[in-house]
């Protein structure tokens, strides 16, 4: 590693190794960081994507309903959820959910990783336990993995839901007041067509942008949530390395999050140009 060399040479060595996919070796696990990260990344991604998925399927309709029924009870529920989602720190919501659903009610399994003690991981295809167990037809493992996923992903979803629902509501409300919605009404288009084909698609652009932003927040938030739920992902890996002053994993973690972030923004931009033809032209 050249620790006796000058800082510049050390950095040069680091860069050369990096180009070959070598992020150094962890002191605590004794394994190459790249291998550690690759083993743990699917666990983090599975959790984050499921959290985002729940946030989207709850947040978008909630925002839409709130926009089409302003000041109704659904609008108030939306406001309550988004405000509390923003205000409560995720490790706290995570602890509260564990306290209620595991300790008090006993509905959820112990927050101890991706599977309960009696299950073994499914055959590795994608690294996502839900997909792998479904592919292998091992429904007992699927159920176990899902049960373990529910609380942490809801914790993440509660956090991600707030900006999504709020932006959807605001965007749709703005579009519904615009001139072309008025002309669509004057032309006698059915309400459903106006709402979906005209209003929703036009308000989707800020929503997709927010989705990208929320996903990157989630990658950061993951560090705490994974710790609370003893999730064997890259977040808890980085946190443990940080406490042990094990710098290579931390570097690797930061770098891989940055790469994920860039990829994500690329996907968001591509999606935007699909939705709005004007974006493509401007680029």
């Amino acid at each position: 590693m050249g620790l006796n060399e000058s800082l510049f040479s050390q950095f040069w060595i680091y860069l050369k190794d990096l180009l070959q996919g070598d992020m150094g070796r962890s002191f605590t696990t004794g394994q190459p960081v790249t291998q550690d990260l690759m083993e743990r990344l699917p666990a983090s991604l599975e959790l984050t994507l499921l959290g985002l998925f729940i946030a989207i399927i709850v947040g978008l309709p909630l925002g839409m309903l709130a926009a089409t029924h302003p000041n109704s009870w659904i609008d108030h529920i939306c406001r309550l959820l988004t405000t509390s989602g923003v205000c409560l720190p995720t490790f706290f919501t995570g602890l509260v959910l564990i306290y209620i659903f595991y300790y008090l009610l006993g509905w959820a399994p112990a927050p101890m990783g991706r599977l309960d003690l009696f299950s073994s991981p499914p055959q590795d295809v994608t690294g996502f336990y839900l997909i792998d167990s479904a592919l292998a037809g091992e429904w007992a493992i699927f159920r176990s993995a899902l049960a373990q996923l529910i609380l942490p992903s809801i914790t993440l979803a509660l956090f991600a839901l707030a900006p999504l629902a709020r932006i959807t509501r605001a965007g749709l409300l703005g579009v519904l007041n615009s001139d072309f919605i008025r002309s669509a009404k004057a032309a006698g288009l059915p309400r459903r067509v106006i709402l979906v084909r005209y209003a929703l698609r036009n308000s989707l652009l800020p929503v997709v942008n927010t989705m990208g932003m929320v996903f990157s927040y989630l990658l950061g938030i993951n560090v705490l949530v994974e710790k609370v739920f003893a999730w064997p992902g890259i977040g808890s890996y980085a946190l443990e390395a940080l406490i042990a002053s094990d710098y290579a994993p931390v570097q690797g973690f930061v770098l891989s999050i940055a790469v994920l972030y860039v990829l994500l923004n690329l996907i968001v931009d591509l999606l935007c140009s699909l939705i709005d033809p004007r974006v493509e032209r401007a680029a």
């Binding site: 001139d179 072309f180 698609r201 036009n202 939705i275 709005d276």
Partner: peptide, 23 residues
Amino acid sequence: RKLRGRDFAMIFQNPRTALNPIR
């Protein structure tokens, strides 16, 4: 709704904003 557009129709000022911009 069924009468609008079929029996009577309307055109507006500022035609650029009165059309759906992404359709």
